Amino acid sequence: MTRAPATAATVRPMLPADAPDVLALLHWMDAAPEREVFAPDARDVPELCQECEGSRCFITEGADGVSAYAALSPFRDGLVLEGPLGEDPAALRALITRALASADGLPVYAFCARDNLSVRQALEAAGLTPMHSTAFYTAPLEALRGGPAPAGDCAVDTRLTLTEYRALYRAAEDTWADRLDWTPEQFSAHFAQPDVKLLVLRRGGQPVAFAELERRSEDARADMPYLAVHPAERRRGHSRALLALAAQEAARWPEVRSLRTRAHDHLHAARSLYAHAGMTHCRSVVTYLRETEEEA
């Protein structure tokens, strides 16, 4: 596949032949935490081409090849912006504008590192509004495993029915609403994965709190993406107990050495819990949204 020579930067749809250059941009992002944006998971050319098949992908091409990348992919009730990736502020703005023009009036989400100021400025100039930030915390497993045991009237379980999961999920955290739409098949498939574990505290047979674990073997890490405690059961030590149980359970994966978790900026109790448990703040990500044309 050949391209016509370009003498000035041009924004155009991505072609399969562009994949090696886009892959180089992904590796460039990986080299510095402050460059982080929502981006494809693939890190080789065949996987990248396959992953891009369901997205509307755009690149900026100049005399030296591809210099920036952005795409739109299905997400929640609308679309998510992948990227933009690149160093030139003008190219970032042009890519965002081109991507948004193909959004068909749907809401568009974007995620980027708090310190990625050039991308944040480009997103805000394009009309995306910051909604909240998410802080990530990490600690070695050994530092967390000695936490308090569950209250004496609580039993530890590893399963929830879908009805129980939805009820506790809905009561504990309304910003996780996308999981409320899971079908029974999706729910069962998720927790059947060998890299996913569920820890549940029950009191009187009723679930009062749960935590989820996901193994990230490539980083010798386990993530705890969700920790939920029913509002009526808070300030009873359930969160601290689940954090210790999560570290103990993660240690069953021989290659895992650390635990990472997260909390949105309005979850002050969770942030305080992680800080007092000795976890270190390692990164923050800002969530952006451009609402539908009807809502905006």
Rank of each mutant, 00 (worst) to 15 (best):
S73C: 14
A110L: 13
L79R: 11
A113G: 11
Y69N: 00
S118N: 08
A113W: 12
E61L: 10
Y69L: 06
P107Y: 07
T60E: 12
E87V: 15
R93P: 02
V80A: 10
V80T: 14
I96D: 00
A110S: 15
L72G: 01
P130L: 05
D64V: 11
E61H: 11
G83P: 01
S133M: 09
D115R: 15
G83K: 00
G105W: 05
F75E: 15
L85C: 01
R120F: 04
G78I: 06
N116K: 06
A63D: 07
V119E: 00
V119A: 04
E82L: 07
D88Y: 13
R76T: 07
G78T: 02
A68I: 08
I96L: 12
F75K: 14
F58T: 08
A122H: 01
R98D: 02
S102C: 09
D88H: 14
L92N: 00
T134H: 02
G86N: 15
T60Y: 01
P107Q: 08
V119S: 00
A99N: 06
A125H: 12
D77H: 10
T134R: 12
A135P: 06
G83W: 09
G65R: 07
D104N: 12
A135M: 05
G83I: 08
E87H: 14
A126H: 08
S118H: 05
V80R: 14
G86Q: 15
V80F: 03
A125S: 14
L72T: 12
A113H: 15
R114H: 10
L85A: 03
I96K: 05
G83H: 12
R120E: 10
R76P: 07
D88N: 15
A68S: 10
T134Q: 04
A125G: 13
G65V: 12
Y69Q: 01
E61D: 10
G62Q: 04
A113E: 15
V80Q: 11
R114S: 06
P130I: 04
A135T: 12
F58G: 00
A101V: 05
F75G: 06
S73D: 14
P74D: 13
G127D: 02
A91Y: 06
A71C: 08
A63Y: 02
T134W: 01
T60W: 04
A101C: 11
L72R: 04
F58C: 04
S133E: 14
A99D: 12
R120W: 01
